[in-house]
Design a protein around this nucleic acid. Sequence first.
DNA 1: GCCCTCGTGGTTTTT
DNA 2: CCACGAGGGC
Length: 789
Amino acid sequence: MQTLPQPAFGAPESDSAAGSISARAMGALRPAAAYLDGLNAEQRRAVETTEGPILVLAGAGTGKTRVLTTRIAHLIATGRARPYDILAVTFTNKAAREMKHRIGTLVGPAGEGMPWLGTFHAIGTKILRRHAELVGLKSDFTILGTDDQLRLMKQVITDQNVDEKRWPARALSHAIDGWKNRGLGPEQVPAGEASAFAFGKGAALYTAYQARLATLNAVDFGDLLLLCLKLWRENPDVLATYQSRFRYILVDEYQDTNVAQYLWLRLLAQGHRNVACVGDDDQSIYGWRGAEVDNILRFEHDFPGAAVVRLERNYRSTGHILAAASGLIAKNEGRLGKTLRTDDEPGERVTVSGAWDSEEEARLIAEAIERLQSQKHPLSEIAVLVRISAQMREIEDRFVQLGLPYRVIGGPRFYERAEIRDALAYLRVTANPADDLAFERIVNTPKRGLGDATLQQLHTYARAERVPLLLAARRLCETDELKPRVRSTLRALTESFARWARAVESQPHAEVAQTILEESGYTEMWQKERSADAAGRLENLKEFVRSMEEFPDLAGFLEHVSLVMEASEAEGAERVSLMTLHAAKGLEFDTVFLPGWEDGLFPNQRALDESGRAGLEEERRLAHVGLTRARKRAKLSFAVNRRIHGLWSSTIPSRFIDELPDSAVDVVEAPAHFSAGASRFDRNPTPFGSSYGTPGWQRAQAATQGRDAGAPGRSGGFGSGARSGGPRQIEGELIAKSTGAASAYSGGQRVFHTKFGPGTVAGVDGNKLTVDFDKAGRKMVLDSFVQPG
DNA sequence: GCCCTCGTGGTTTTT
DNA sequence: CCACGAGGGC
């Protein structure tokens, strides 16, 4: 495999795409590379430029994963590298799994065993376990999840005499995560930042937190990368072995890397310098959790002489969708610039429609889905992508009412559920009696009368004697410091753990787990609970025990769980998918609904406030990601009234709507009950014969009437309210060009709004008014929604 | 030690 | 409006 001479694959080969005779002749020397068939010229260049740094800018739907996997296949098939010479990093386990699978189908068993294909964190873990002692750990260190991290943080805050109310553990945790994302250890945090927290105690808290982790022989997620950096900086010889081991490095989703990951990669890449980063600056949507778009923007600077390949040919979406997405993203300034193109037909235009309020928006989406469904459009090819999860509620409600099957993607994950975390805690203590955090979690779950006071005693003893809590408990039971009742309960618990630990040695671990859950009273606790979700929780526990069987031993299972926090997705059923835009990255659907395109919601006000223009650009990229999920149909919508934290607010359409290229967009008329005249609903016969016959329409009618009766501020003497409520104005150009004509109103003028009542105009921007309402306070509204008052 | 009421605050999320 | 956490009462 490895015997082909290097020169044959040197410079001449890069010409092969151009088709020089010698190159083709050279190519003919080796067996036909079937895996290269069907790649376009750019993809092929991305695969065949194997030596030196290369940045592959892969736009949405341009075959990114294919390039990545083919590149690995190519490296192996041409003998440049053996599977274990290649480091391939991804962000998610899902991406890693998919890559593994696809490499398997390309090169067969040879690719299966790629030991260095995985997430940053999984690979970091693997490296740290080998050299744990060099960074002050034992190789069986535990990896803490966010909940353990938080509990630990609380203890540290209390220990340092900081007021936990003023400086919540969440905030400290966030700050430390941020520092770790930037590759900063406790000593490296800039003084200004470190002192900003808790009156100058920030650095001390960080240091204390790391010290606590070390005593627990534990790390958090950030450490998995940060400690690698420490390891390599302090041990150049260790670094050198990894630098020479990884002949080829590939990175997926490079735009999502944070500073720590960047430093990690840069250290490794300094060996052979064969580093291929694949990503799309236009899909960078994780800046808020430390991703640095700059990493990808600066690639050529960081790796001088880097090749850059742009994949711009889109194989997913039709012309109009692509035009809309491209036109939108072109408004961003901080980008490397790509122009997606397709050979596909223009297809349907992206539709934009307005609704009176968010309930109606949900109704319209559900109806549109019913219509698609009756046209035999598979539900599994429909997705609704929202900006924030709070938007899901109304949409779900609607789906439930209609009996429309749906599933929420990216909700609470399996291993995040309380019952699973509890069960895990029992197993963790069983496997490792020194796991104090796990012990604390379950010491009084189910309730057994071991409350805060008892726990405090244990802590005091444990700290004084420098022993883990479980051992402290065992010893305290030998004394008479505990109340008899507490003592016997605690003794029973410690003895149980000792017994279970022995059982793990001799019996199948899944069976032991079952025993633990029963003997501890944990299962019983849920059986007694009569709440609606208790049954589901018991189901989850069953599934949890069952899933253990797939692992060789308890330790292997626990390792898997700490790194691979994901739900076992029940695939199959024919359902509409509902998820956030963030969760949608990497997925595609024939039809995509994009509700809630309103300023403040999307682009999100908080993103704007916190990150200014960079925030706006990230929101725009998010919009771009949303649009490019659609193969054939993208349907945008907005509501002019939305309930935010319980109270109704008037909203204005997203500025992104106005940024879409006109030619790619259809502004959809409001539904029948919205306008005085005939609407498209009247003209479009539905399978029900008339749209008036659809269940959804009837409900819409009913709801409209209810709303007319109940809406606040609606003046009875002024007719149907529809007049002032704005139906006419919602249609057509006015909304789609909301920054257009200047308003007829001017500052100081008194106006009346159907929902907010009377107010005074404070400012005018085109047809957007800033109004100080007498009751509701200052709001931005479209002038068409108020009348002179 | 447990339960209930009141008060508060409320993007996006992987490992 | 709703979900979660802290503190007071039992």
